[in-house]
Amino acid sequence: MTTLHKTPATSLVPLTLTWLVLCVLTVLSLGLGQWFHAAAWLPLLVAVIVWVKGTMVARYFIESDLTHPFIRRLLKVFIAFAPLWLILTGFYGGQFAQWGSLFLKH
């Protein structure tokens, strides 16, 4: 008889695969930073890698899909927060700095 409810995992295979992908992405992002440090699109790519790594830890290590909706949302928002800022300041850093100086002046 099958159950509709997901249960917490007992297998180590998904954890091992997640760990391998996280290690590869870490080394890859380091290489990207060195090879393309002047590229305008680097912040976008780095933001995507950060989001993927954070989501993998949440989904496979914390098993966020099985958690209470508050925990699920908390993880989703926090993991998306920095990559979003990374993209915004990467492409619109000048405008942000201008707005900041306006607040400081008045």
């Binding site: 930073g33 950060v50 954070g54 830890v57 949440a58 290590f61 993991i79």
Partner: peptide
């Protein structure tokens, strides 16, 4: 304990590119 350690891991995964990748 595992949840706390994974959360601390997620935070480091965000900090790492901020200082060591984006030059």
């Amino acid at each position: 304990l595992a949840s706390y350690w994974h959360a601390t891991d997620i935070i480091w995964l965000i900090i790492f590119p901020m200082f060591y990748v984006l030059a």
